[in-house]
């Protein structure tokens, strides 16, 4: 940072790379506007992410109990994910209006796939031996789920949560590019058109921080939740 700052003042850096202090001043120039934009983008991302979690985990839960539906659910998921985000955005905007609803849904669409894959893999990640044990004790399906399937799936679920959080931010940002009134993506696009280099950098850094934070929060929760180590291979 210091190096960047010094070399900027010495005139070594191109116009396109501002000094850290310049980016900082862009933040100080309009902290309220940037805060509002950040709130807008974050809220859309969180709403979409929450919907994606409910839908993906619900679908995986059904797939875990009804084996016949498993391929259908997975193929639907793959099919939906193969629609490019960019193709879905204008269509949703046409159908649902160009508002927070559309942008939340895009965030959900962007982030549900790793959640679905993680949950579907996770719900089948138990060991066969363990399942036989539960069978010998004639455990009810619900108890099998609670005592075996759910805990076994946690590492996979967290992988899904971690991967999906930055994608929800990406979806929320991308949806703003089709013409939202407010949001980090909007500020970014405006700054780009006005060739406001400091502002471009500021918005980019804020966006990166958002998705980094999404990942980091889940990594922290994961570390606090999964206290046991990976099953050790005790064969000698």
């Amino acid at each position: 940072m210091l190096l960047l700052e010094l070399s900027k003042h010495a005139g070594y850096l191109p116009v396109t790379l501002p000094a850290p202090s310049q980016v900082w001043s862009a933040l100080l120039a309009n902290p309220r506007g940037i805060g509002l934009a950040l709130g807008e983008t974050t809220m859309n991302a969180i709403r979409g992410y929450a919907v994606a979690i409910v839908v993906a985990l619900g679908a995986a839960f059904i797939a875990a109990f009804v084996a016949a539906l498993r391929p259908t659910i997975y193929n639907l998921g793959v099919g939906l994910s193969s629609i490019p985000l960019i193709a879905a955005t204008p269509l949703l905007a046409l159908w649902l209006g160009n508002g927070p609803l559309t942008r939340s849904l895009i965030a959900g669409l962007a982030s549900y796939f790793p959640l679905l894959v993680g949950a579907m893999q996770g719900f089948r990640a138990y060991e066969t031996n363990h399942m036989e044990l539960f069978h010998v004790y004639s455990a009810s399906r619900w108890r099998v789920f609670r005592f075996l399937i759910l805990p076994s799936s946690l590492p996979y679920l967290f992988t899904g949560f971690k991967l999906a959080a930055p994608l929800a931010v990406l979806g929320s940002l991308t949806a703003e590019l089709t013409g939202a009134e407010n949001g980090i993506g909007v500020l970014m696009l405006n700054a780009l058109f006005n060739f406001d280099i400091k502002m471009v950098w500021l918005t980019v850094l804020v966006a990166c921080a958002m998705s980094g934070a999404g990942y980091a929060i889940w990594a922290l929760i994961e570390r606090l939740t999964i206290y046991w180590e990976a099953p050790s291979n005790s064969s000698g």
């Binding site: 931010v169 990406l170 980019v204 966006a207 958002m210």
Partner: peptide, 8 residues
């Protein structure tokens, strides 16, 4: 880093 942010 989100693609949308990297592209600019």
């Amino acid at each position: 880093a989100p693609v949308t942010a990297v592209a600019p």
